[in-house]
């Protein structure tokens, strides 16, 4: 085989694998979306026609929608806490040398690395057995605020490392005081990273099942409701709510990608 042929084969192989991968990533989701409109909602064949009834039933299910609002409330509160703590901690890490700095950093990243089952159980026995707190809405908020912290920390610190501190010096040389410098120079540069960090922490909280499962007490969140739907084989509503979520995420992602460099933020924070 000559050089050209090999080159072409390699390119074909690369594109082939890449294409196959996209198919692999998308086929199950597309099938699920199709099923959400199918009368027979659990498998493609026998095909019995199309309907919107599953969506009607899903949005009429006040328990499910209520659980979704609970999840949104938990995600908002916990991501806010994570963002405030994470931005402050990032400033400390990026600007100051202090004893046990690496330990501090590791501790801040740990919640992202510990498997959810273990973190959930640790929180459950801590709240219930040691502190005697009855698990519920607020224990989920506390747990998720810790879980979301690493995502803020990672995104904001990496932004701070690339931040050109001479900008701040220039502002000060031009007579701005530290507060003005922060408000007019530092914050605008960091804002997209802070926003991305918040969004990540929010999504992680919203999609978390296993941590919430342990510490939710009697509160219902979206993921635990969805879990029982799968367990009880309630396919129609599960397909519809899942498709709805994919759709919302797609719209938000498209907006975000047009607004900023999402890919590089994501690359900063891989890990569960």
């Amino acid at each position: 085989m000559d050089h050209e042929t090999i080159e072409r084969l390699i390119r074909l192989g690369l594109y082939g694998t890449a294409g196959a991968l996209l198919v692999f990533l998308w086929v199950p989701l597309v099938v699920m979306m199709v099923l959400s409109f199918a009368v027979n909602s659990s498998t493609l064949f026998p095909f019995e026609g199309l309907t919107l009834a599953h969506y009607g039933a899903t949005f009429a299910d006040s328990g499910l929608i209520g659980a979704m609002f609970t999840s949104m409330a938990i995600a908002t509160i916990s991501a806010t806490i994570a963002t405030v703590l994470g931005v402050l901690a990032s400033m400390a890490l990026a600007r100051y040398e202090f004893p046990y700095r690496e330990l501090y950093r590791t501790l801040g990243i740990l919640p992202m690395v510990i498997p959810g089952v273990i973190f959930g159980i640790a929180m459950l026995i801590y709240f219930r057995t040691l502190l005697g707190i009855v698990p519920g809405f607020w224990t989920v908020v506390l747990t998720h605020s810790v879980y979301g912290l690493p995502f803020v920390l990672l995104i904001v610190t990496s932004r701070m490392y690339t931040f050109d501190e001479s900008l701040e010096e220039a502002a000060r040389d031009l007579g701005a005081d530290p507060i003005e410098t922060f408000v007019d120079v530092t914050f605008p540069v960091l804002a997209p990273a802070i926003g991305a960090g918040f969004l990540f922490a929010w999504i992680r909280s919203f999609e978390d099942f296993i941590r919430a499962f342990f510490v939710r007490g009697t509160a219902n969140v979206l993921t635990t409701s969805m879990f029982s739907m799968i367990k009880y084989g309630t396919a129609p509503k599960m397909n519809a709510i899942s498709t709805f979520i994919v759709f919302v995420v797609a719209v938000l992602l498209a907006i975000a990608m047009n607004a900023g460099d999402v890919a590089s933020y994501v690359a900063d924070t891989d890990g569960e």
Binding site: S62, G63, G66, M68, F69, T70, M72, T76, F137, A219
Partner: peptide, 17 residues
């Protein structure tokens, strides 16, 4: 389904929100 429980849940969710 039990709308009664659920209306409670959504109210709870609203309060939480």
């Amino acid at each position: 389904d039990s709308p009664r429980t659920k209306s409670h849940q959504s109210r709870r969710a609203f309060l939480a929100a």
